[in-house]
Structures are given as structure tokens and as C-alpha cells.
Amino acid sequence: MITHGEQGDLAFCRAGDESWTILRRGFRPYDDIIYHKERFYTLGNHGGLDAWDVSSSSPKRTVIAQVPPVLTGGRVIHKRYLVESSGDLLLVLRHDYFDDDANSPSQLHRTGGFKVFKLEERSSMNPRWVEVKSIGDRVLFLGDNYSVSISAREFPECSANCIYFTDD
């Protein structure tokens, strides 16, 4: 499953298909996609999380979490990432540097920090995002196309409980 083209159309292709199938068109409707627990999850550009079952000839969309987490204190979300870590689905919000002094252009477009949320699935209620204060020994690598997590125990060159990010 991908978003592609100038408009960021959502499309998928199964093994054996001879062409891509467009699922949704629009102006960049999705921020990120991940495959998690045998389903594709898409993060809408307003933060809503959907799951897609593309096993049948008519793919089905299920709304998982409509209410996205927000940032407080004047911080503006710069980018959202989906990443799987130790079996959990994480949503990472990247925000710009926030400075009360509006006349400090040197800090424009600099990342100020991140907030990490975990999708908490409760049997009787809709799943919801819960802030995570620590990811233990995990290490996140956030990318424009895909994000991954690894264990700092297995890769001691990396710092635990840290997010490695690149310029987008």
C-alpha cells in the first residue's frame, strides 16, 4: 500500500495483481501508512486512524481512532509518523521549535521535540491514543517513507529511549 503522485493518492497492489488499485484520491489525504498485525493502517492528514482489509475484491475501511492527540502550549505539529515497537502501534508527533520571541528566525523550521502515543485497545471501548513517557530500550528511526524501531540491547551503538530523525 502506498500514497503516490502529486496528490498523494492511496493505492495498493497484491501479489499477482497486474496493476495498482486506487483506493482514495484527494489532496494528500494521508500522512503515513504502516502494516501492523495483518492489517494496513493509514493516518489521515487530520490525525484519524483507519485500518484497511485488502484481502477481498472490495477493500474495506474501518475507523479505528477518530480523535487524534493534540499538542498544547502553542506547539504546532510539523509531521506525524506511525511506527511499530514491541508489538505496539505508536503515533509520533514532531513539532517545531517554539520560541516566545517571534523575532528569532534562526529557529524557524527547526524541530523542537516529539511526543509519542500508543494505541490502547480496550475490549469494550474504541481504541484510543495514550501518551507514552518512555519506550524503554527501544530506539525509533523516523523516516519520510517508513519508520522502524530496534532494540538498543541488540544494537548498543544506538541510544535507548531515543528518536533518530532526519531532515525532511
Partner: peptide, 17 residues
């Protein structure tokens, strides 16, 4: 200005690269 680095979740600090 490049915008890349390592963010420490506990300390909420960024180490620029």
C-alpha cells in the same frame, strides 16, 4: 540549516548531528 538529530524521550532534549 539541516534539521536532523537524536531526541531523548526522557530528557526531552535534542542532540543535533
Amino acid at each position: 540549516v539541516h534539521d536532523l538529530g537524536i531526541f531523548n524521550i526522557q530528557e526531552k532534549t535534542i542532540q543535533s548531528c
